[in-house]
Simulated scan of single mutants.
Amino acid sequence: MEKFLCPVFDEAFSSWIYRCIKGSPVVGLMLGNIHVRSAPAKFIGEVRYEDPDFDLRSKFIRFCRKELSIDDDVLVATTSRMGGSLLPWSARRLYCSECLSRDIADGLLPAWRKSWCYVTSAYCSVHHIELSYFLGHEGLNKGWAAFAVEANRIKEPPSSKVFRIWQSDPVHSTKNEILKKVSLWLDESFSQSDNLALRQRLECFEFVLRMFLQSPTTQHVGGVAWHITHWGRGGSRLGRYRYSFIHSLRMGVIEAKINERVCAFVLAAKVFSIVSDEDVGVMAEAMRDFYYYFSLSRFELGRRSATFGCRQDYAYVIRKLKSYPLARSPGFMDFLMGIQSEEVR
């Protein structure tokens, strides 16, 4: 084990391997030009990658395990995962700038954390800040590349009035408080994965999150969270004419950057009554001239989220939401009634 560096707490497997390669010439020679394998996806220009962090069947993990004779206990520890859905490898771009800076201060190469890899990732529970979004490539050196971006970032005040409000108090501090409450709520669901009610609650929360982040296409205006950056214009994308309703639900959570994601978290927290109406009301008041969705009732949020193009889309959403009977709460039922009020006729 002398050739291995110790994994940082919560470090992703691919990040650990990259740091071992850079920290040990022996490991570098044994692994050579190892990379994450990809294959063409359904649509032209889309690529599907293997999962080098959690999938023990991936060629990346199997090759590393064979060449480095990684102990089973170490492998289990570095590839273990919480409950909830994972983002695909190419979409794992959320990171905590403070975590990366702390690694550097400790004399380490920046390590990518596993907790940043989930559909429900938006908040660092260690440093109590929202995550940042990395715009670079999806290589093994993402941790170092993201730190380099942060280190060279020129700190300037937001150029628009909207983003000045979004990044300033009381909106900014309220966002963090809401994200903290959602993070604790999610941790409870993750820690009791054998509890059917909590598992259904988590799955239902993820689906509502996907609805708020539905990717804009020529056929669908997109989830309401996208309006936080398009400022009410919806942002239909001409290249998305082939995307089905279900595919746009899947793609939205992959494409969303941190502002859209945080917005969706706040709205979902309201639907599931994770936070009080007073908490969201602070943001609603400050943002009322730019983003009125925070002030809407749960029923009205459901109605505005009913972006169905046909009866099949409506049936799919209702079937999914009704498949979580143990996740129902008064707030969620109001949201569901709002969706049902917009049934395609």
Rank of each mutant, 00 (worst) to 15 (best):
A151P: 00
S329T: 15
D313T: 06
M30I: 11
A41N: 13
L213K: 10
E285W: 01
L296M: 07
V221W: 00
Y314G: 01
D53N: 14
S323V: 01
A225F: 06
E138V: 13
S273M: 14
E50T: 04
C20L: 08
P158T: 13
V36Q: 08
S215L: 13
P157M: 09
M333P: 00
I17V: 14
D277L: 14
D10I: 10
H137I: 12
E188M: 15
R250D: 04
F290C: 13
V266F: 05
C204M: 11
A306Y: 01
R19E: 07
L87Q: 08
D55Q: 06
K175D: 02
D106C: 11
D279Y: 05
L87M: 05
V280N: 06
W112E: 11
L108G: 02
I104T: 15
H128I: 04
C310E: 14
V275S: 02
G234E: 07
D289T: 06
G222E: 01
A146S: 15
E156G: 05
S295G: 14
F332L: 10
G281N: 03
R201G: 05
L296P: 02
S15V: 06
G281A: 04
G107I: 09
A264W: 07
S159I: 10
Y118A: 03
A225R: 05
S248P: 00
A256L: 04
G252D: 03
R62L: 07
A146E: 03
S297M: 02
C124P: 00
N195P: 01
M211N: 07
D103P: 06
G281C: 03
Y324A: 04
V282L: 12
P158K: 13
K257A: 11
K161T: 08
W231V: 12
A315P: 00
A148P: 00
R57M: 15
S101P: 05
N195I: 10
G281F: 06
A284I: 02
E67K: 15
Y243E: 02
P52F: 09
F63G: 04
S38N: 14
L196T: 15
K161S: 13
P325V: 03
E11M: 11
L209N: 06
F205S: 13
G232M: 02
R304N: 10
A151L: 13
A269I: 01
F54A: 12
I34F: 08
L140Y: 10
F294C: 08
P325K: 12
D10Y: 08
G222V: 06
A264D: 08
R261G: 01
Y293A: 12
P157R: 14
S305W: 06
P88F: 01
Q214L: 04
S273Q: 15
G45N: 07
P170N: 13
F335Q: 05
V149D: 14
R92N: 00
S38Y: 12
W89I: 02
S14G: 12
L56F: 09
L31S: 06
A151K: 15
H137E: 15
F63A: 13
M283R: 04
T78W: 03
D10G: 08
P110M: 12
H220F: 13
I104V: 15
G45F: 09
I339W: 00
R288P: 03
E255N: 12
E188A: 11
K142Q: 13
T174Q: 15
Y316L: 02
L296S: 06
L29A: 13
A327K: 07
S295V: 00
M1V: 12
M30W: 06
S168N: 10
V27N: 03
P110A: 09
T229C: 09
R210I: 01
S323M: 00
